[in-house]
Simulated assay, not measured.
Amino acid sequence: MVDVIRTVVVDDDPFVRMGLTMVLGAGDGIEVVGEASDGAEAIELVERLRPDVVLMDIRMNGMDGLTATAQLRSRADGPAVIVLTAFDTDKHLLRALRAGANGFLLKDTPPDDILASVRRAAGGESILAPAALTRLIDHVVRLEDQELVESRAVQTRAALDRLTAREREVAVAISEGRSNMDIAASLYMSVATVKANVTRILAKLGCTNRVQVAILVHEARDVPSSAAADRHRADPGGGRA
């Protein structure tokens, strides 16, 4: 991890920017190098200041956070992006994660958790609890057209079929939020071997980070068929214990 984590805060609410800047400025080894009020300004700041982490609001006037996140994460040397949202079932949030965001934070997240998340993102880690991702995907799936859901599930399963059996085990472990050390212990592999598998998985799936891998695994495993979706609407409990 870098000695000083250079951050940029992006939000169209000046009070939110001020609050985040104060929180980050109080953290050891974290420096706020710039603030932006929309996505276009954020991209310009990133090009000029080269921060390590960007905290990005989703909903903004002008260029929104989705477009800006996709552009930043498409770059080989792009910064880590943590998306800011008011609630964790925002349908736009999943789009941001699919675009390569490293994770998300709720705007009422406690300061210590914000600082910890920025440090983790700077170290290349994902900022996303598996339970939160599953809940988000389930919520969005119920809102989407079922033909689209089925089409994406077929494509996702086809993508995962390109992995070897061992790589699929590692991909599933990634979707469960496990660290490389945890994966190594559970699958009886060295950490170096886990890292090599992760690198191959990212390349084969065309993913830029572990969050995108987790989304693919959850969608392939958990996205319901049309019939299952119909049953869910009839019985929201789904017959689960």
Results as ranks from 00 to 15, higher is better:
Gly34Val: 03
Ala36Thr: 05
Ser37His: 12
Ala40Tyr: 00
Glu41Val: 09
Ala42Trp: 00
Val46Gln: 03
Leu49Lys: 14
Pro51Lys: 06
Pro51Met: 04
Asp52Ser: 13
Asp52Glu: 14
Val53Arg: 08
Val53Trp: 01
Val54Ser: 10
Leu55Thr: 14
Asp57Cys: 12
Ile58Trp: 06
Gly65Tyr: 13
Leu66Asn: 12
Gln71Asp: 05
Leu72Arg: 08
Arg73Asp: 00
Arg73Cys: 13
Pro79Asn: 08
Ala80Val: 09
Ile82Glu: 11
Val83Glu: 01
Val83Gln: 01
Asp88Val: 00
Leu93Gln: 04
Leu93Ser: 05
Arg95Gly: 04
Ala96Ile: 01
Arg98Ser: 08
Gly100Asp: 04
Ala101Lys: 00
Ala101Gln: 07
Leu105Gln: 10
Leu106Asn: 08
Lys107Val: 09
Lys107Phe: 07
Asp108Trp: 11
Asp108Ser: 15
Asp112Cys: 01
Asp113Gln: 15
Ser117Ala: 15
Arg120Ser: 10
Ala121Asn: 02
Gly123Gln: 12
Glu125Ile: 00
Ser126Met: 06
Ala132His: 08
Leu133Phe: 03
Arg135His: 06
Leu136Arg: 10
Val140Asn: 07
Val140Leu: 06
Arg142Trp: 01
Glu144Met: 14
Asp145Pro: 00
Gln146Ile: 13
Gln146Leu: 11
Val149Cys: 04
Glu150Tyr: 08
Arg152Val: 12
Ala153Asp: 01
